[in-house]
Design a protein around this nucleic acid. Sequence first.
DNA 1: CGGTATCCGCCGAGATACTG
DNA 2: CAGTATCTCGGCGGATACCG
Lengths: 144, 144
Amino acid sequence: MATSTAAERRAEERRAYDAFLSECASHNLLDQISNKWVTLVISALGEGPKRYSDLARAIPGVSQKMLTQTLRIIERDGLVTRTVTAAVPVRVDYALTDLGDSLRALLGKVKCWAEEHMDFVYLAREAYDAREEQTAVAALNRKS
Amino acid sequence: MATSTAAERRAEERRAYDAFLSECASHNLLDQISNKWVTLVISALGEGPKRYSDLARAIPGVSQKMLTQTLRIIERDGLVTRTVTAAVPVRVDYALTDLGDSLRALLGKVKCWAEEHMDFVYLAREAYDAREEQTAVAALNRKS
DNA sequence: CGGTATCCGCCGAGATACTG
DNA sequence: CAGTATCTCGGCGGATACCG
């Protein structure tokens, strides 16, 4: 019997894709660490250990939720350590592990690359947009 | 007159955030290049120029829409070139620019890092999950 | 072949309120 | 201070159909 409904086919493809993902686990990990917040948090932690609220201030635009979520993920992966100091008020420090620091070195280079070539990219975008506008105008002329 | 409604405050904050984003453009670019599909496309193009359909086959799990969208983005940023050969059927080749290739080198290192340390990360995850389960059990005991 | 256009489900992420 | 819990909503991305 053939799997005829769209739902069944979708489920099957989904399973195939999941199988691929768990098989090719490096893509999985790559996806995790090439996340925006992960990059920023690890970069911020490069200067040394920081408290939760320090991180929140050091990373503009991050919400409480995303900061906590990101920290949990990279803690689980063994990239940062979480140290709770029982006091009033409670104090929680985050620090890079050796593994986390080795990744920071790499991501730092990517960050530098982005900063170095930003000007070029922005010029490229302007040029591209200008060309786009021209072709749009040309298309309009052809219609009229 | 104070901006009293929640909608007004939200709009204002949104504008402030947008201003921050365009001001701190490096984060913007960082977000772009640390995208899953961007990473995979640039990596695939590292082996040399490829046709559209080659890319689709080389990157498992990518949809037509996302492939096209991703290619447009990195073409606009000047990371790849798009060459149309007028023939029947049409042939379109994509190739890395020098800028794109320099980024590929960096992302390649990150990819290598991921492959090298994957085992460690997976062990760390298991250890973390085991600890989590323990604390969950402890919490249950305290309740009963 | 190499796209564009359109609809839509789903979930990621922000806002808000509450806790130890 | 450092979270957790819950709701809501925009938009990412998949499916489908159609063009040059």
